[in-house]
Simulated scan of single mutants.
Amino acid sequence: MHINLTGHHIEVTDALKSYVDNKFERLARHFDHVINAHVILSVEKIEQKAEARLHVNGSTLFADAVHEDLYAAIDGLVDKLDRQILRYKEKRHNHRSSAVKAAE
């Protein structure tokens, strides 16, 4: 998975980059058909925001999270994306199994 990391009003440090890479490895463990991910980290006064857009086969998943701590926002973002990926995987599996039953 190719991760494109961008910062708005924040400098993307090596620590942030490695933290995002480690967290997104969890997503790759569940679903390895992610083509690329675009992650945007931004700061607006007190709020730290993390948002991501994942491109998978035939679909795009989007999630964002806002928290006072940027690392907590990244954790929330990955949790949301993880749930979306599992739901997407289940939809694909159910669609395939219903097509096989219809063919029989």
Score class of each variant (00 low, 15 high):
residue 101 K to W: 11
residue 71 Y to V: 00
residue 48 Q to S: 05
residue 36 N to I: 06
residue 22 N to I: 06
residue 84 Q to H: 10
residue 13 T to D: 08
residue 98 S to M: 11
residue 54 L to R: 05
residue 63 A to P: 05
residue 40 I to T: 14
residue 90 E to C: 10
residue 36 N to D: 14
residue 21 D to S: 12
residue 56 V to T: 06
residue 45 K to L: 00
residue 38 H to D: 14
residue 99 A to W: 14
residue 71 Y to G: 05
residue 79 D to L: 05
residue 60 T to W: 01
residue 5 L to K: 08
residue 60 T to G: 03
residue 48 Q to I: 02
residue 104 E to Q: 07
residue 6 T to F: 09
residue 71 Y to W: 01
residue 13 T to A: 08
residue 65 A to G: 00
residue 46 I to Q: 09
residue 12 V to T: 07
residue 85 I to H: 04
residue 55 H to W: 03
residue 28 A to P: 01
residue 7 G to R: 06
residue 10 I to V: 15
residue 9 H to C: 06
residue 74 I to F: 00
residue 65 A to N: 07
residue 47 E to Q: 09
residue 52 A to Q: 05
residue 59 S to A: 13
residue 65 A to V: 04
residue 80 K to A: 15
residue 66 V to C: 04
residue 63 A to Q: 10
residue 10 I to K: 02
residue 40 I to L: 09
residue 57 N to V: 09
residue 55 H to G: 04
residue 6 T to P: 00
residue 38 H to W: 01
residue 81 L to W: 00
residue 62 F to A: 08
residue 47 E to W: 02
residue 97 S to N: 12
residue 23 K to W: 04
residue 90 E to T: 12
residue 94 N to Y: 09
residue 47 E to Y: 05
residue 2 H to M: 13
residue 78 V to L: 05
residue 103 A to W: 12
residue 3 I to E: 00
residue 58 G to D: 06
residue 104 E to R: 15
residue 53 R to Y: 01
residue 64 D to T: 14
residue 4 N to F: 01
residue 81 L to S: 10
residue 84 Q to Y: 08
residue 63 A to C: 05
residue 14 D to Y: 01
residue 70 L to M: 15
residue 95 H to W: 13
residue 67 H to C: 10
residue 64 D to R: 10
residue 97 S to V: 15
residue 35 I to R: 11
residue 9 H to M: 03
residue 52 A to E: 11
residue 87 R to K: 12
residue 23 K to L: 03
residue 102 A to H: 15
residue 64 D to F: 13
residue 82 D to F: 10
residue 63 A to I: 13
residue 15 A to N: 09
residue 16 L to Y: 04
residue 88 Y to K: 09
residue 88 Y to R: 14
residue 31 F to C: 07
residue 11 E to N: 09
residue 53 R to T: 14
residue 97 S to I: 15
residue 8 H to A: 07
residue 7 G to Q: 08
residue 98 S to T: 14
residue 32 D to H: 10
residue 44 E to I: 09
residue 89 K to V: 06
residue 101 K to Y: 11
residue 99 A to R: 15
residue 83 R to S: 12
residue 44 E to P: 03
residue 50 A to R: 03
residue 45 K to Y: 10
residue 81 L to K: 11
residue 49 K to P: 08
residue 2 H to N: 12
residue 53 R to M: 11
residue 82 D to S: 12
residue 78 V to Q: 08
residue 25 E to P: 04
residue 24 F to K: 01
residue 27 L to N: 06
residue 4 N to R: 08
residue 53 R to I: 11
residue 38 H to E: 15
residue 81 L to G: 05
residue 24 F to G: 04
residue 21 D to A: 14
residue 75 D to N: 12
residue 87 R to I: 05
residue 61 L to N: 08
residue 103 A to H: 13
residue 95 H to V: 07
residue 80 K to T: 12
residue 103 A to E: 13
residue 17 K to Y: 02
residue 100 V to D: 11
residue 27 L to M: 06
residue 88 Y to D: 10
residue 85 I to T: 02
residue 44 E to K: 14
residue 41 L to K: 10
residue 91 K to Y: 09
